[in-house]
């Protein structure tokens, strides 16, 4: 499950910000490690909401520092839904 989410995020990150899918691992931070700027991060979040059928409120986005944070959040949100 979490591997599927990670792979899905990698697809989104490549599409939105040109990140090499091989670089997308749980411990990487979006901004510093993957060079995703704040505007592209919004695109990543909206694309993830659509792909995984979850809601990620803007206030929660700030807590998503790493890819692993996002995977856990999407997993929990998916279960809650």
């Amino acid at each position: 499950m979490s591997q599927d989410i990670l792979a899905g995020l990698a697809v989104i990150l490549e599409e939105v910000a040109g990140v090499d899918p091989a670089d997308v691992t749980a411990e990487k931070t979006f901004i510093d490690d993957l060079d995703v700027d704040s505007l592209s991060m919004v695109e990543v979040v909206v694309a993830a909401e659509e792909k995984f059928s979850v809601k990620i409120p803007d206030d929660d986005v700030k807590s998503l520092k790493t890819v692993g944070d996002a995977v856990s959040y999407i997993q929990r949100a998916g279960v809650a839904a």
Binding site: L39, S40, V42, V46, E49
Partner: peptide
Amino acid sequence: PRRVSPHLVP
């Protein structure tokens, strides 16, 4: 509105 690009203004 949620689907409007964050790159719109720039």
